[in-house]
Structures are given as structure tokens and as C-alpha cells.
Design a protein around this nucleic acid. Structure first.
Lengths: 230, 230
DNA sequence: ACGGAAAACTTCCTATAGGAAGAATGATCC
DNA sequence: GGATCATTCTTCCTATAGGAAGTTTTCCGT
């Protein structure tokens, strides 16, 4: 399991549950938690050296992200592996929402947003070169997530952001337990750049189309990846 | 606040937090909780005659529905009133997702689904006649919610359902704290029926169009309602 | 009387210990 | 060897106690 004690030495006037939430998130990203693994409240409390209450709260919140599954009277587990079917479903769902997000965000884009998006692509590029294991791939996924989330946050519609967030957790799960390592980096960077170019040009329709192609690309590569594996 | 002790006499081998969750939901629907009201963990525990732990867990889960807001170190509150701006945003978000849900659900519809949808419209009709106060309007909202949720559940895409769920809580909040009482019933029933007719005919495009019109209608009436109030 | 400081109170958050119920495991007895 | 029962483990829930921060009330000095 490998969840170490939390290093909350300083200024711990922060809610402990938030800390646990972050800690678990990092553990997910670093691949220290396997799919379907049981998440024992007692063990976690022991490992993190805090009481059960904040653990329960963090897990309850994590459940709505899809990374964690709760069975009544049985406890929490890490979400299971992604099936190919699920990957397709997830991409279909993203394809409904994210192109429109890109359209809206581009329609009301600012220089600051363009700069931020550009930064995520730089990060994506840099981290793709350095990623060579499950542990070092985290910055790559973070940059990817940040790109999509920035766009969702810039739609000016908090409910579209909520809808994206509902999918975002599952996207994380896909990244972790579904497939596509850094092998995806080349095409993904190109596709992100295409979207960014549309933002720079202020062409909202092109932004939508670019995002659509990107999601299509991810799906295609994921399916191909799964087909080439068996 | 008016949350009575939970009547869990029998077979209480059920997770207590689920019970609290349901109890709070019903309290919402019955209008026993006002917008922005503080949700005191201690008080709730006293009123429901259980300890704090299941309360915390239920509230943590409710937070992801948008009906409850948590501020770190301050506690939980009932979500605030809907502003007109938010209503428009919510409807725009629904308009992106729900027509497509209708299209997909219609494409793979069954007789059973049609029957269930028809039942929700019957319920909607019946409860709209009987609803005369905030307390008796609950069945009306339930029938409305059930119609939309049934469709989301029948898309065959669990992530679209997740996205709908992310919005669904806010739709509840809109119903409660945004506006449109049973005055909405006439047009709403007609629009739901239109969608149902498309399902009966197996015309997925018409189902999508019908749902699109329905959401448009809700938005238009909500905006008109708000304009006529000041 | 009034402003400000101290005390009391409330509320959230944390911690710890333990009980009840179900599941899994192993031991005993036929 | 197989079935039954006891033990152990896990998990949920309860109870309680206390710390920290904010808020209200009270009280004192000017």
C-alpha cells in the first residue's frame, strides 16, 4: 500500500481530511495503489498517523470522483481496471462535453488563458521526455489534466465545469488503470497544440473541432493499444 | 430545522449514513431546509439521535450533489438561492447533455423503458393537480427528476449518467431554490409527452429535438418567471 | 453611557476506545 | 474426511473527551 505518515509539521490549521485527500490522490498518481485494492480505514489511519474521522471524510469525497468505490458494509476499494468498453464510453462522453467547452472557452479567451494553456503544453512536452516509469509519469498526466481543466474552467459556466469534473476523475482512472502511457505523448502534444492555435487565432469553431479530433485521437489510440495487447 | 429522530426501528443493518442522506434529501424536498441555512453537525446528531460520524459522511456525500456547501473550518450550509445567471448556465449545460442522452436512450429503447417513462408522465400529471404547497410538491419534482434520470440511465453510457448526476443535484437545487413551482406543470407535461412520443415512434432525432425544446422551455419560463417577480 | 477587553459559549475538528455484526479461518468432534 | 463451532478479523457505528477558532455576552474602566 505504501502510504507514509503525513508530514504536516507546520501550520496545520488546515483540515486534515483535505490532506488525506491530497495524499491519496498523489498515491494514485504515483501508482502506489493498485486497481481493486482494498482501502482499509484502520490501516490508512495507522499509516498516516491520524484518526479515522478524516480518513472517512476523504474517502467519501473521493468516491464521487470515481477513483474509489464504496460498498455498503464492506468498505472502500480502489476502482477496478478500465475495460475497453468503458474506455469507449468515457471518450464518447468526453466528446460530447469537451469540444463545446473548448468552443465556449475560446469565445471568451484572454491572453492570460492562452499563456496558461501554452505552459501546459510546454510541461507536457518536457515531462514526456523525462517520464520513464509509472512514478515519473505523474507530471505528464498532471499537465494533460491541467490543459483540459483550464478549458473547462474558462467556459464561464460552472455547471459545465461540474460535468467535466464528474468525468475528470474517471479520466484519471483511465490514465492510471486503462492504458496509454507516454507513448501517447507525440500525438497528444500535437493535438493540444492544434487547439491552442485555434485559441490564439480566436477561432472558436476551430477550437471545438480541434478538441473533437483530440478526443477522437485518444480513443483511437486507446482502442488500438488494447487490441495490440492481447 | 425540523429534522426529527430517524424511525429506524426494524432491521437496522443498513449503513446509518445512507439513512441520514435520505433523511436530508427528503427534508430538502419538503422544504424543511431553507437556502443558506447552517447545517450543524452536533444539532443534526442530536435531532436524529445518532452520533456525528454518519452525519459527517452523509454531508460529505451530499456535497458533491451541490445541495450542500462545505467551507473548511466553518461547516456545512444548505446551498444558496439560485441567481438568474446560474439558472441560465445550468440550462445551457443541460442542453448540451440531455438532448444527446435522449437520442442515445431512444436509439436503444425498449417497451419497458417506454412504459416507465409513460408512468412518470402520469405521475407528473396527477401530482401537479394535487400539489398546492411546498410540502405537497415533492411528488411532482420526483416524477420530473425520474423522467430525466431514466433517460440518462438508458443511454448505455455510465459516464453520461455520471455527468447527468453531476447536474441533477443542481437541478434539484434549482427546483427548490430557483423557481418555477407547479405553474410549470402544463408546458412541462406537454414537452415530456412530446419526447415520449418520439420514443414510441423510435425516432431518436425527434427525441433529441424534443428534449432540446423542453430544456429551452424550462429556461424560457424560468427567465420569464424571474423577470415577472421583481 | 460607551468602547474595548475578557470570559463563556458554540461549533468544528481530532483522537481514542470499544461494541455489534458479518466473513473468513481454523480447530474439534463424529 | 466432513460438518459444526469457536476464534479472529474487518468494518461500521457509538460514545466521549478535548483542542482551536470564532462569536456572543459580560464586565470593567474611562
Amino acid at each position: 500500500m505504501a502510504i507514509g505518515p503525513s508530514s504536516r509539521g507546520t501550520l496545520s490549521r488546515q483540515v486534515l481530511a483535505d490532506h488525506v485527500y491530497d495524499e491519496l490522490m498523489v498515491a494514485f498518481m504515483d501508482g502506489r495503489l493498485e486497481a481493486d485494492e482494498a482501502l482499509n480505514i484502520d490501516s490508512l489511519a495507522r499509516d498516516l498517523e491520524i484518526s479515522q474521522t478524516p480518513i472517512r471524510e476523504a474517502l467519501a469525497r473521493l468516491e464521487s470522483t470515481g477513483l474509489v468505490i464504496r460498498t455498503a458494509l464492506k468498505g472502500y476499494r480502489v476502482a477496478p481496471l478500465f475495460s475497453l468498453e468503458e474506455v469507449v464510453e468515457l471518450m464518447n462522453a468526453r466528446q460530447l462535453i469537451e469540444p463545446e467547452n473548448a468552443f465556449l472557452a475560446c469565445s471568451r479567451s484572454t491572453d492570460a488563458l492562452v499563456a496558461q494553456l501554452e505552459q501546459t503544453i510546454v510541461d507536457l512536452d518536457r515531462s514526456s521526455e523525462q517520464a520513464d516509469s509509472v512514478a515519473t509519469i505523474r507530471p505528464y498526466w498532471q499537465a494533460d489534466e491541467r490543459f483540459h481543466r483550464l478549458i473547462a474552467e474558462s467556459t464561464g459556466n460552472r455547471f459545465l465545469l461540474a460535468a467535466y469534473t464528474a468525468l475528470g476523475g474517471h479520466v484519471q482512472r483511465f490514465r492510471l488503470f486503462g492504458g496509454l502511457g507516454v507513448s501517447d505523448a507525440g500525438p497528444a502534444i500535437a493535438e493540444h497544440t492544434r487547439v491552442l492555435d485555434a485559441f490564439k487565432a480566436g477561432d472558436a469553431d476551430a477550437a471545438r473541432a480541434g478538441m473533437d479530433e483530440h478526443i477522437c485521437g485518444v480513443r483511437t489510440r486507446a482502442v488500438a493499444d488494447a487490441a495490440g495487447e492481447h
